[in-house]
């Protein structure tokens, strides 16, 4: 008897299955169905903002018409670079200085001696704090687009999005090494840089990290170009990176954690030094839709300084108390 009930139940299940197939094939209407090919970011953008551990502390409005890079110096002054000039603000947002440059600076870095390194499309210019051009390096190539610069005591690292490679140069600008070119023998996948968002940085422990944006991962290299490790996962959850060329920018907190920014789904997040998702700084709701180029800097107090090129300002996020 019991067996019979099971058989009847199994038969009903089978029948339901056949009915489902028939209904799905003949009587389902696409008006009610979501477009399976639609790339809908709304759900991802509307993540819970209460998860954010940071709050926006202040905003600095720039007078530049187009901005691309932000950096801080040892005294926590804030440098904004863009088309035609560089502006310097105090840590509290008080305007200190501005100087003009010829052309557009795509990225900016300030070294310990307060020399200002500007990535001027295809070449690097070094300026001092009073707005004097110290030197201009020769361009690595016509198609070069310098999108990030990192400076140590002895080396300068340049990320070239145009040629999809990182250069190690000495302080005089002489190119010593090319890092990250595809090399299957040494298990180097090569940088995939579909658009000019290609960042690098020196971690507090002195190691060189480069974003491989097409692969949605961070790659750690020795200074002579050996790939040491990678982290990063391509997926659409909060823990991963998705879309084209993400993360677009990053910076380091003092404990070695990564602060990352993304475009497409505008969000700023923090990952531990081991690459584990840690917390949210800001989500899409804080930015205009379509904002790209959220360059990042971190000052000595671990405030996260975000360049907002659409709203033409620098926004400072601090940890909630």
């Amino acid at each position: 008897m019991k067996q019979k009930i099971f058989v009847i139940a199994a038969l009903i299940l089978l029948l339901c299955l056949i009915l489902f197939m028939t209904r799905d094939l003949f009587f389902s209407h696409s008006e009610n169905k979501p477009n399976p090919y639609e790339y809908d970011l709304k759900a991802l953008k509307s993540a819970d903002t209460t998860q954010s551990l940071y709050t926006e502390d202040r905003q600095i409005h720039t007078r530049l018409a187009e901005i691309h890079g932000v950096a801080t110096d040892a005294a926590d002054n804030i440098y904004i670079a863009g088309n035609g000039g560089v502006e310097i603000y105090s840590r509290d947002g008080v305007f200190l200085k501005k100087f003009s440059i010829k052309g557009t600076a795509r990225c900016i870095t300030v070294d310990v001696k307060d020399n200002i390194y500007l990535g001027m499309e295809d070449h690097v210019e070094i300026w001092n704090g009073s707005g004097k051009l110290i030197t201009q390096w020769t361009s690595p190539g016509e198609e070069s687009i310098i999108t990030s610069i990192a400076v140590t005591d002895t080396w300068v690292f340049l990320a070239d999005a145009g040629r999809k490679v990182v250069y190690r140069c000495d302080l005089s600008g002489k190119m010593i090494d090319r890092i990250g070119e595809k090399d299957p023998e040494n298990k180097i996948p090569g940088f995939i840089v579909p658009s000019p968002y290609f960042d690098l940085g020196i971690a507090p422990d002195g190691s060189l990290w480069v974003v491989n944006p097409g692969r949605h991962e961070f790659e750690k290299y020795t200074f002579d170009g050996r790939l040491v490790s990678t982290w990063g996962e391509a997926n659409m959850t909060m823990e991963g990176f998705c879309g084209c060329c993400n993360p677009s920018h990053f910076a380091f907190l003092h404990d070695g954690s990564f602060v990352t920014s993304e475009k497409g789904i505008e969000r700023i997040k923090i990952y531990t030094s081991g690459g584990k998702f840690n917390s949210i700084v800001a989500l899409s709701a804080s930015f205009e839709e379509g904002t790209k180029g959220l360059d990042l800097a971190v000052d000595s107090r671990d405030r996260v300084i975000v360049l907002d090129p659409v709203k033409l300002m620098v926004r400072i996020f601090v940890k909630k108390k």
Partner: peptide
């Protein structure tokens, strides 16, 4: 469903 009904 197929595997479940497949038991019987």
């Amino acid at each position: 469903i197929l595997l479940l009904s497949g038991i019987f």
